[in-house]
Design a protein around this nucleic acid. Sequence first.
DNA 1: CTGAAAGCGCTAACAG
DNA 2: CTGTTAGCGCTTTCAG
Lengths: 341, 341
Amino acid sequence: MTAGRTGRKRPTISDVAKRAGVTKGAVSRALNNGTGVSSGTRERIRQAAVELGWSPSYAARALNGKPLGTIGLVVRRPPEILDFDAFFASFLSGIESVLSGEEHATVIRFVPDAHTEAATYERLFNDRFVDGFLVTDLRVDDERPAMLRRLGAPAVVVGAPEGSSDFPTITNDSEDAIRGLVRHLVAGGHRRIAHVQGDPGMLHALQRRWHWEKAARDAGVDPGPVEYGSYTIEGGAQATERILALPERPTAIFYGSDLMAIGGYSVLGDAGLSIPGDMAVAGFDDIALASFTSPPLTTVRSKHRALGSAGARLLLDMLKGQEAPASTTLGGELQIRESAG
Amino acid sequence: MTAGRTGRKRPTISDVAKRAGVTKGAVSRALNNGTGVSSGTRERIRQAAVELGWSPSYAARALNGKPLGTIGLVVRRPPEILDFDAFFASFLSGIESVLSGEEHATVIRFVPDAHTEAATYERLFNDRFVDGFLVTDLRVDDERPAMLRRLGAPAVVVGAPEGSSDFPTITNDSEDAIRGLVRHLVAGGHRRIAHVQGDPGMLHALQRRWHWEKAARDAGVDPGPVEYGSYTIEGGAQATERILALPERPTAIFYGSDLMAIGGYSVLGDAGLSIPGDMAVAGFDDIALASFTSPPLTTVRSKHRALGSAGARLLLDMLKGQEAPASTTLGGELQIRESAG
DNA sequence: CTGAAAGCGCTAACAG
DNA sequence: CTGTTAGCGCTTTCAG
């Protein structure tokens, strides 16, 4: 495949040096800084390198504290979410779309608990196995920003509210879209709008809840009951059951994810309630399925892929030494279909 | 966080050695082989290591040809497929579910072309940046098995037919399910069954086509027309248009992916054709959406996650030096719903 | 069983 | 501008 592979082992920098009639040091300088070498020998060295099909060893470079061209993604969630959840696959897709053009690789690690999570960040970076991190799922009192700061690791936080950490942040701001949704509901005569949300320890879940509350108040109605559950069909179904059991039943439910809303559909159906006639329903994410449910689901589209690509792009820029904006915001988009009246 | 972090830098093996009153060599032996050291000093060394919170440097180990605990996944497809395609996100989910329990990380790289693909495999492994590979999307005349063999890289091929390479293979065998589907169609009176498939350069696409052909012949009907397109909604829509333009129109279409089938739905609908009345439709994958389309889509369920987990498990076993079976087969499963009569 | 020493492939500081 | 020299942190001989 590659030219010059005479022996079994790959060529080292010494081979290149020998062939170019210089020393390792010269090769290193020529090919890294491009400085400290006359353009003549530099060319000779470059030649020798391609003839030998040489490329520097990641390990040796890492041992000298050089960046490897990798970014780390450590995820403290069960790996199944890649399969179920709307977010991660799209997010990853966004990341890869910029990395693939930049000769960078992604190092992914799913971890079960906070302790492993911390240890993983630490090892990955202390050894410069990754050049920096994309941090997602920021939680209330999340210790990662402080730890990463301490490690001196470059990082960008993705999907968290502005100012939630002192790292550059890509924010997913759905405030306007959620406000639009609530207005739509209120205009349709709804006064009691419930909210079903995922893990309240997640900053983005909290944020969406605030937006819903604020929008409700601003529209002159009291925020209805709130239920929590996992971001899955089952989680949504269970939360819906709890809501239906409430003494004062709401007339609309805003779910924190489309999957949860779909779980709601089945419970509402079983209870003989029609959508949106007896209960208006709205989701969040706008997954592919949302336009195929019956009735089609009104939801807030969230730009998962863009979050990934913007995060990756920003991190790459930072790694190149560029100044990073404290925060970049991507807006959500209200998708009105038929489930919310 | 970690105990013993007095200074700014992390402890090295020398620190551990000093604290235990031995030399680096002894520490290395004690903690790796566990041999060549008296159990007394071994314990002392272990103590010192935990007190210092020491863990070996990836880079230094890699430089000595030791495995890092990483497996590589290089994908020659546009990164968008993570978002659209049913396969990759689930597959990755399966991989991660076994890796997360084994302290292994995944190194992912999306590449645009065959040349970059080859170079990526080579660099990643020559430098032992990854311990082995999971290879997917095997193509006709794929050069990767030979190249990986030449590199001496451990690998398991996933989702390809048995015997398609000399690497251990996790096969996704849908022959029975496809046969069941064709029988179902033929029993429903269909004599002309078309097939829409994705990239014919992919071995798995070819394989499914063969299974369909064979099943048709065995059921006593001639295999109908075949159209190719990308594995997307648009790809399916376009292929469907071509089929509808055919002089002898089939009465059933078997699509190589659910997404393609959904693309078919809209074209058929636009043409005023009812499903399954005027045209029976079947898909492949059984994505979440499949049971929500109208009519619900009859399809062949494929075990994407299991493919990932089985592949990862097998590769890990191989890396531990265990003998690997030449081939492991996961069967598909026919999901009869309403779109195919 | 243990210590000493060489070396993995590269970078960076220092002389010349 | 170029060569030489130390290391980076670890593993692995090889003596003792």
